[in-house]
Design a protein around this nucleic acid. Structure first.
Lengths: 160, 160
DNA sequence: ATTGAGATTGAGAATCATTATCAATAAGGA
DNA sequence: TCCTTATTGATAATGATTCTCAATCTCAAT
C-alpha cells in the first residue's frame, strides 16, 4: 500500500519547503526527539536530547525551532503550571480537532493524556463557544481544559 | 437587619485571627484593592494601587500577601497566558463551587467572566472527574477551563 | 511598663525560563 | 562565482517571581 511521500522525514521536509523554510539538521533533531517520545518535554529537556543527536545545536535554536513548529501547526505548546512550557508533536493529521486533554499531577508533574469524554467535552465546549461568541461578540480561537490533582503514587507517598 | 460581624473588614480580620495571622496595613491594602475592582489585576498592578492607599508597602509584601490569600482560600490565582499571574477576590462565600470561567482576548488581554453553561460544564466536568479518577487512579483537585480568542474591538481593529 | 519570641516588613539580590542581539556561516538562485 | 537571505550558536538582556536579611512590629507573659 503506497502511503505517499510520508516516509521518514520526507513529509516534514515537504511541509517546510512549502512554507519557504529549510529542514536543517538542528531542526531535524528537534523533530526527531519529539517524534520519539510520548512525554511532554520542556525546551530544556528537548535541548538535552537534541545534543545527543546533534551536539552542535544551541538552546536558542531549539527555542526558535519550537516556536516555528508551533506556528506551523506541527507542535502543541502547553503550560502545565510548573513555570516552563511543554511541547508535543501533533501526530494524526487527519482528525486535528480530536485532541486529547491532560491530567497533571501537582506533586510530581506527571502528565496523563486522556480521551474519555472528549466527545462530550467537545460537544459542550462547541455549544458553549457558539453561545458565548454571540453574547459577548467574542471570536473563540482555542480552549484549554485541564485537570490538576495527585497521581496514585504521589497520593500514597503523601498519605504517610 | 443585622448582618453579623461582616461590616467593613471585620470579617477578614476574623479569618486572619483564626489562622493565626495578623491583618496588617499592607495586607489590608491588598484586600482593599482587590475588593474594589472586578478586573483581574496582576501583582504589579495591585502593587501600584496599593501604594495609593499605603505608600510604604513594598512589592515583596504584595506578593507574599497574595500567596497568603490564595492559600487561605480568599483569592483565586489565574494564569491567562500572558506571563504574569492574575488575582481575583472570591466574593460569595456561600456557593464556593459555583465559580465562573473566562474568555481571554489574545490581542488586548481583556478578560470576560461568564457563567453561561457553567452548570452543564460543572456537570460534565464532575462526571469526567469521577471517571478519570477511577480509571487513572488520579485524585482531581481542581480544573481549568478557559477560552482564548478575539474580543469585538480587537476583531474590528485587526480586520483592517 | 519591659521583655522576648515570633510574625511581618521593605529593599535589594538572586533565580530562571524565555527572548533579543549579533557576528559568523550556510544555502540557493542569478 | 557572487549576492541575497536564512539560519545558527554564544551570549547578554528581560521580566516576573522568589529569596535573603536586617529592621520593625505585636502581643502575651512577666
Amino acid at each position: 500500500m503506497y502511503r505517499g511521500p510520508r516516509r521518514g522525514h520526507a513529509w516534514w521536509q515537504g511541509r517546510f519547503r512549502g512554507c519557504g523554510y529549510r529542514l536543517t539538521l538542528p531542526r531535524q533533531a528537534v523533530l526527531d526527539v519529539l517524534s520519539r517520545t510520548s512525554k511532554h518535554l520542556s525546551a530544556e529537556e528537548i535541548y538535552l536530547e537534541v545534543r545527543k543527536i546533534n551536539p552542535g545545536s544551541g538552546l536558542s535554536t531549539v527555542y526558535r525551532t519550537l516556536e516555528l513548529l508551533v506556528q506551523m501547526g506541527l507542535v502543541f505548546k502547553f503550560d502545565f503550571g510548573d513555570g516552563r512550557a511543554r511541547y508535543e508533536l501533533i501526530r494524526n493529521t487527519r482528525d486535528k480537532n480530536h485532541h486529547h486533554h491532560h491530567l497533571i499531577c501537582i506533586n510530581c508533574n506527571r502528565v496523563i493524556d486522556y480521551s474519555e469524554f472528549i466527545r462530550e467535552e467537545e460537544e459542550l465546549l462547541s455549544k458553549t463557544e457558539k453561545e458565548l461568541s454571540n453574547k459577548y461578540d467574542f471570536k473563540i480561537k482555542k480552549h484549554i481544559v485541564q485537570f490538576y490533582g495527585l497521581c496514585g503514587e504521589c497520593r500514597k507517598e503523601l498519605e504517610d
